[in-house]
Simulated assay, not measured.
Amino acid sequence: MATTTKDGVSLHYETTGDGPTVVFLNDIGYGAWLWGWHHDAIAGPYEALVWDLRGTGDSDAPSGAYSVQTLAADLEAILADHGVRSAHLVGAGLGGMVALQYAHEYNRARTLTLYNTAADGGDIDADALDSLALDNGPERSLDGAFSPQFREAAPDLVDRIVGWREAEDATGDAFAAQAAAMTDFSAPPLYEVTQPAEVYYGVDDPVVPTAAAESLAADLPRGSAEAVEGRHLSFVEYATAVTDRLVAFLDEYAAE
């Protein structure tokens, strides 16, 4: 594990594996557990870097407003601290917004993989977003994240997810600050985000409408869109298929 500091805020990150760096950017409120399935598929031929957004896990939770621009600056501090010159960014929801902002503002992003992400916070269903908060109770907070079919088929896994959430996830003011960052976001000019980009979206995601994700992919010069069954964490529900696609995408561009 490692820690760096940005404007007095301590930021925690961990790396595993060797090779080109793949950075995982958490969705609103969620801790690093979110990437456990992807991490196992990536670490080895790639270096997997997972970090706790401010307000989450072992990173500090400063009071006051957050913004996507602030979180992108946090990411730049982490990559500079770790000596990363080029990175593939994999972000979900809020993390996808951070990836978009970072790719436009800084020069280390090589590719973008975006899960359940919108280019404008005004497209987000604010009530559905708030329902994801752990403060609503472990069971209710999973309603918008996972389909009933997933939860019924894997109750033991769902129990473990609840435990991971209680140990790592943002709550209270920290969750609210991240939610505000997400709903206040307006993407930079997408025609200037020229990295290869793949956008995946859950067909039953109550937080990010299908039209918003498809519009994001269409407006990225090198973007493509792929529908995935499931809700806001559809990339976890269908982790095997999604990670297979991610590895193929990374392999295509890592050699360049």
Rank of each mutant, 00 (worst) to 15 (best):
T5P: 02
K6C: 11
Y13C: 00
T15I: 11
G19A: 01
T21Y: 12
V23G: 05
N26F: 01
N26C: 04
D27P: 08
D27R: 06
I28V: 09
I28Y: 05
A32P: 01
A32F: 07
W33L: 02
L34A: 01
W35Y: 05
W35Q: 09
G36S: 12
A41C: 13
A43V: 12
G44M: 06
E47I: 12
E47S: 15
A48N: 13
A48R: 14
L49R: 05
V50Q: 09
V50N: 13
L53D: 12
R54P: 06
G55A: 07
G55Y: 07
G55N: 04
D58T: 06
G64C: 13
G64Y: 10
A65Y: 04
Y66V: 10
T70E: 01
L75P: 10
E76T: 11
E76F: 05
R85W: 15
A87T: 08
A87W: 11
L89S: 02
L89K: 12
V90G: 07
G91Q: 08
A92G: 05
G93S: 10
L94T: 00
L94E: 04
G96N: 09
A99Y: 04
Y102W: 10
H104E: 07
H104S: 07
T111G: 03
L112F: 09
T113A: 13
Y115E: 11
Y115F: 14
Y115K: 08
A118P: 11
A119D: 01
A119W: 14
G121S: 15
G122N: 10
D123K: 05
D123N: 02
D123S: 02
I124R: 10
A126M: 00
L129H: 06
S131F: 13
L132I: 06
L134I: 15
P138V: 05
E139R: 03
E139S: 13
R140L: 13
D143W: 15
G144V: 14
A145T: 04
F146R: 08
S147L: 09
P148Y: 05
P148D: 14
R151Y: 13
E152A: 15
E152I: 10
D156I: 08
D159P: 06
D159N: 15
R160P: 01
R165T: 08
E166C: 08
A167I: 06
E168C: 00
D169K: 10
A170H: 09
T171M: 07
D173S: 09
D173C: 08
A174Q: 01
A174F: 00
A174S: 05
Q178I: 08
A179E: 01
A179K: 04
A180L: 04
M182F: 10
S186Y: 02
A187E: 06
A187H: 03
P188D: 12
L190S: 07
Y191K: 12
V193L: 11
Q195P: 00
Q195F: 01
E198C: 14
Y200H: 03
Y201C: 05
G202H: 05
V203P: 11
T210V: 00
A212I: 01
A213V: 06
S215N: 15
D219T: 06
R222N: 06
E226L: 02
G230C: 13
S234R: 04
S234I: 07
T240D: 12
T240C: 00
T243R: 15
T243P: 08
T243S: 14
R245A: 11
A248D: 05
A248Q: 03
L250N: 09
L250Q: 07
E252Q: 02
E252V: 11
A254E: 13
A255Q: 13
A255E: 15
E256I: 12
